[in-house]
Design a protein around this nucleic acid. Structure first.
Lengths: 108, 108
DNA sequence: CAGGATCCGCTACGATACTG
DNA sequence: CAGTATCGTAGCGGATCCTG
């Protein structure tokens, strides 16, 4: 038999990860934020290939899933900083591994 | 400055990984095949949540990207076995890490 | 048994304009 | 500066039927 069905269980760890990190910019955002807290404007300038609306949406979802922290400073002009949470930090090695694997093996 | 723009480069390792493994069932398929070669029918029975057409498509894409090997036996009835390539095997630890991270941290 | 061929809905993604 | 609001679109995922 060896009918180990853990692989496709709707609530298996891998499936949850896909749901949470499936967004087109999420892995890249986490990677970027691993360097330290960044303001929204900085993020925006670093990702010119997409729009503010898209970035806002994905950042908010990452915040909801507790991977990043959003801190609002009550000043004018407004200032908002995004940073990794402990949970986000714990995922960082995986991102690095994925990138390294890609760099090493997907040269074509 | 620290304007390290490696993060969003269209051809950075992480982006390539997303393109190749973005499909809904690809990570789960790689994980399943890490146990050893499997026939199409076995795969199908283990993934009842999706359709044959979908599985075929994703398996063929994984084959094109050299992550899995597809072996056809010239017999009747037809017999096709899928297995991980060396490249696919090299990615397996990352899948395990992702699943472990999900199991440990996404309990809610 | 292991697929190929169609058709089709949904939603992720994106462009643009406006605001506190 | 850091967003919202609205609308349009492509393509992924899925259902269904057909074949060597």
């Amino acid at each position: 038999m060896t009918n180990n069905t853990k692989f496709h269980l709707p609530d298996c760890g891998l499936t949850k990860v896909q749901q949470i990190l499936g967004g087109k910019w999420k892995l890249l955002l986490l990677w970027y934020l691993s360097e330290g807290p960044r303001r929204f404007g900085e993020i925006r300038r670093c990702f010119p290939e997409t729009t503010e609306a898209m970035l806002t949406k994905q950042l908010r979802e990452l915040e909801q899933d507790k991977l990043i922290h959003r801190e609002v400073f009550k000043v004018v002009p407004p200032r908002v900083e995004y940073s990794l949470t402990d949970l986000g930090l714990k995922f960082f090695p995986i991102i690095q591994a994925m990138n390294n694997w890609g760099e090493d093996n997907l040269k074509d």
